[in-house]
């Protein structure tokens, strides 16, 4: 927790700075002095209601939810969470119902780019700020917080070129995607393919959907390892799924010889696997920082004078490579107390 907090401090400080900036802007507008700034802040945000519909309550979503509960709780904002447990119909229904309950802010994590688009527009028309978390919809809301999968894909491509390119290896790379239709799979695959054009010696020999499942990734990797005896690297689109592929590399006795990469949210398992040598490197999305950023996005919207739908703000979060035990701070542990 100590490490986590120190990693979080800059983000919290940035958030505070943002709030102060917002506060000073309001000073000009409404003659708020430093003495009355907290009062103005509280007037703007306390008693507000935030509704949150994740895909489900996995590790990543629990981390975000924990941070929101803690922060919003301290600010006097109420948080309503609906867990649709990865069911599209349930998610759509939850969002529809929440719009009728008229929260001030609606936060959603989209499983597809189309599913919630209509309802999110309806929310905006009903005067609700729409915030999208990590997975975007075709409807651009008031704020998007999360990974830029194109940027992340290019980061991965650069690393693959560094490790496998320049003709020093076979240059054969296998990708294990998530669910084939999910935005991170589509955008990530496109970005990695584009990024690899920089070095024609690196080629994607296999790209198969692992459906976020470690067992499927394990089977695919086992087959691909047989098919390509000189394979240079396997890259998985999510840590816990890539863990299955890493075990396949270990079982085939090719640990170290075949490099294993993963892009992931930065849960403890990602750091553990790097330290155990099962992952060569993992690109962490820093879900802990994302959680704080999400809170700040909501605070900005509530304090601003814009009407829902007026502005489109983007809070792209940065990714960090986990390479060794010293990078443990890029991983988060869900705090059960929150």
């Amino acid at each position: 927790m100590g490490i986590n907090l120190s990693k979080r401090l800059p983000a919290i400080a940035a958030g505070a700075a943002l709030s102060i900036l917002a506060g000073s802007a309001m000073t000009l507008a409404a003659n708020i002095t430093r003495d009355t700034s907290r009062q103005a802040f509280d007037t703007a945000i306390s008693g507000k209601k935030v509704a949150w519909v994740p895909l489900w309550m996995g590790v990543l979503e629990s981390e975000w939810t924990g941070i929101m509960k803690d922060q919003f709780g301290q600010y006097g904002i109420s948080l309503v969470t609906r867990d649709p447990n990865f069911n599209n119909d349930a998610q759509l229904q939850a969002v529809s119902q929440l719009i009728d309950e008229k929260p001030d802010v609606l936060i959603v994590q989209n499983n597809s780019t189309t599913l919630l688009a209509k309802e999110l527009k309806r929310a905006s028309d009903a005067g609700i700020y729409v915030v999208q978390m990590n997975m975007a919809s075709n409807y651009v809301g008031d704020a998007y917080v999360g990974v830029d999968y194109t940027q992340a894909g290019h980061q991965v491509a650069d690393e693959l070129i560094k490790q496998c390119g320049g003709g020093k290896t076979s240059g054969e790379v296998a990708l294990i995607l998530g669910e084939a239709t999910a935005a991170p799979s589509i955008e990530g695959l496109k970005a990695i393919t584009d990024g690899l054009k920089k070095d024609p010696t690196v080629k994607i020999v296999s790209s198969q959907p692992g459906d976020w499942d470690a067992n499927k990734a394990n089977q695919i990797a086992t087959t691909v390892l047989q098919q390509y005896p000189k394979l240079c690297a396997i890259h998985g689109f999510w840590g816990p799924m890539a863990a299955g592929a890493a075990q396949a590399v270990k079982n085939a006795g090719r640990q170290g010889d075949v490099k294993v990469f993963a892009i992931s949210d930065g849960q403890m398992g990602d750091c553990d696997l790097v330290e155990q040598g099962l992952f060569t490197k993992a690109l962490s999305n820093r879900a802990d920082v994302q959680g704080i950023t999400l809170v700040n996005a909501v605070l900005s919207l509530l304090q601003g004078k814009d009407k829902p739908g007026d502005k489109h703000l983007f809070y792209f979060t940065n990714n960090y490579w986990i390479e060794s035990a010293k990078d443990r701070g890029y991983c988060y542990k869900v705090d059960k107390a929150k």
Binding site: G58, N85, F86, D211, W212, D213, A214, N215, A217, N218, P240, A243, G244, Q247, A248, N251, G269, L278
Partner: peptide, 16 residues
């Protein structure tokens, strides 16, 4: 056998 092969258990397989 699943745990032994992948070194983890993910309850999501129940929804797969």
């Amino acid at each position: 056998v699943m745990v032994a092969s992948t070194s983890l258990m993910h309850l999501q397989i129940a929804d797969s």
